[in-house]
Amino acid sequence: MADPDPIIEVHGLVTRFGERIIHDGLDLTVRRGEVLGLVGGSGSGKSVLMRTILGLLRPSAGTIRLLGADLTSLSREKLVALRGRTGVLFQDAALFSTLTVAENAQVPMRERFGWPEALMAELACLKIALVGLPDDARDKYPSELSGGMRKRAGLARSIAIDPEVLFLDEPTAGLDPIAAAAFDELILQLSRTLGLTVVMITHDLDSLMRITDRVAALINGKAVVAPIDELRRLDDPWLRQYFGGPRGRAALEAGQAAG
């Protein structure tokens, strides 16, 4: 199944930490415009895979193409340019604690384009409105925000310069069900209106059901990729446990009732 326009292509990825093999010949293709969920048990290498695709970690073997460029043989300048086209929301939002929300959103603009202050301020306002934060959140510091608002602020920073692909590390972890559902909606809406490709690590079965087009399950160092309905039917002990447990069943039933 050759994809005409893949955003990310991972081929034969091997990641080794000392004796431990995390990824063992992993293949993964992410298509333009899709929302891909990334699941796996603790220590299965979800975050490591994300960091490798982002070029924060070097793989032991294999090739990674991000937006058409081979990450392993990229010059520093090219890598920096590529980073401008990707956005990342880290697990705890990783907002710069000494800057306000608006200033956080302006950081990528300032670094990449060096626009006049007024334009950056106005565009920061736009991004903050896009992620659904109230106006008065703009001049607050990250420590003054609730968990859900911090994640939204982190999202505003990660879409500050209109990336083509957005990486989310457990976006709904630590949020109450209402905030988590609202955040799911927000991601879905942004990916539709902005045409974003989204790669999302999550343990939230409701999120998986609600917003992913396909799900990649990391099992034994390899990735099994399929829409969630197909994934459920695969005969794999880990997947059976994952979807067959009480939480999995509840989420699936809720998803079917809603859909």
């Binding site: 202050e117 007024a118 301020a121 106005e122 920061a124 306002c125 736009l126 409105a129 896009l130 106006d135 703009r138």
Partner: peptide, 11 residues
């Protein structure tokens, strides 16, 4: 984007 209520941001 048109529908977003953007408060006028004053520096």
């Amino acid at each position: 984007v048109r529908s977003l209520k953007l408060a006028h941001h004053r520096l």
